[in-house]
Amino acid sequence: MKFNARVTPSPSLSRRSWIVPVISTFFGILIRMWHDDHPPPHIHVEYQGFEALVEIETGEIKVGKLPRKVARIVREWCFEHRGELRENYSVPSDQ
């Protein structure tokens, strides 16, 4: 399953953040991913003013902060979608 990406500009985020495609939203959580971004493979997560970089393989927050419950939900989501996330991370954006 490929995620449908859409670009959503947000004035509250850095210029780099708003061009990162949204691949999923649930419970008010936005998941963004830029293919072939810097290692390790990761997603960008936003939730009610919180932002974090979350590693795909472990589901752990590497940079930033999320509320504990949201971090747990995102970690579980990463585990459930790990294969798809790995695949999307390595696919060029023009495909």
Results as ranks from 00 to 15, higher is better:
residue 1 M to I: 05
residue 3 F to C: 12
residue 4 N to H: 07
residue 5 A to F: 08
residue 6 R to T: 10
residue 7 V to I: 13
residue 9 P to A: 08
residue 9 P to Y: 09
residue 10 S to D: 12
residue 10 S to H: 12
residue 10 S to C: 08
residue 12 S to A: 14
residue 12 S to E: 11
residue 13 L to Q: 07
residue 13 L to F: 09
residue 14 S to F: 13
residue 14 S to H: 04
residue 15 R to F: 13
residue 15 R to S: 10
residue 15 R to E: 14
residue 16 R to L: 03
residue 17 S to H: 08
residue 18 W to V: 03
residue 18 W to A: 06
residue 19 I to N: 03
residue 19 I to K: 14
residue 19 I to S: 15
residue 19 I to Q: 07
residue 19 I to D: 04
residue 20 V to P: 01
residue 20 V to M: 06
residue 20 V to L: 10
residue 21 P to C: 05
residue 22 V to I: 04
residue 23 I to H: 02
residue 23 I to W: 00
residue 24 S to W: 03
residue 26 F to L: 01
residue 26 F to G: 00
residue 27 F to H: 15
residue 28 G to V: 01
residue 29 I to P: 02
residue 30 L to P: 00
residue 30 L to I: 07
residue 31 I to H: 04
residue 31 I to Y: 00
residue 32 R to A: 00
residue 32 R to D: 01
residue 33 M to N: 01
residue 34 W to I: 02
residue 34 W to G: 02
residue 35 H to L: 11
residue 36 D to I: 09
residue 36 D to N: 12
residue 37 D to K: 02
residue 37 D to M: 00
residue 38 H to G: 07
residue 39 P to C: 08
residue 39 P to D: 13
residue 40 P to V: 11
residue 41 P to F: 06
residue 41 P to W: 02
residue 41 P to R: 10
residue 44 H to V: 05
residue 46 E to P: 00
residue 46 E to S: 00
residue 46 E to K: 04
residue 46 E to M: 03
residue 50 F to A: 13
residue 50 F to R: 07
residue 51 E to K: 14
residue 51 E to S: 13
residue 52 A to G: 05
residue 52 A to N: 02
residue 53 L to R: 07
residue 56 I to Q: 02
residue 56 I to F: 10
residue 57 E to H: 10
residue 57 E to L: 14
residue 58 T to L: 06
residue 59 G to L: 03
residue 60 E to H: 05
residue 61 I to F: 06
residue 62 K to V: 09
residue 62 K to P: 00
residue 64 G to D: 02
residue 64 G to S: 07
residue 65 K to Y: 10
residue 66 L to V: 03
residue 66 L to H: 00
residue 67 P to H: 06
residue 70 V to K: 05
residue 72 R to N: 12
residue 72 R to V: 04
residue 73 I to L: 15
residue 73 I to E: 08
residue 73 I to S: 08
residue 74 V to M: 08
residue 75 R to Y: 09
residue 75 R to F: 11
residue 76 E to L: 14
residue 76 E to H: 10
residue 76 E to R: 11
residue 77 W to P: 07
residue 78 C to E: 04
residue 78 C to Y: 03
residue 79 F to I: 03
residue 79 F to C: 06
residue 80 E to Y: 12
residue 80 E to M: 08
residue 80 E to N: 10
residue 80 E to P: 01
residue 81 H to D: 03
residue 82 R to I: 04
residue 83 G to Q: 08
residue 84 E to M: 08
residue 86 R to S: 09
residue 86 R to G: 04
residue 87 E to K: 15
residue 87 E to R: 09
residue 88 N to Y: 06
residue 89 Y to Q: 06
residue 89 Y to E: 00
residue 91 V to P: 09
residue 91 V to W: 11
residue 92 P to D: 02
residue 93 S to I: 10
residue 93 S to M: 12
residue 93 S to V: 13
residue 93 S to P: 13
residue 94 D to P: 01
residue 94 D to L: 15
residue 94 D to R: 15
residue 95 Q to A: 11
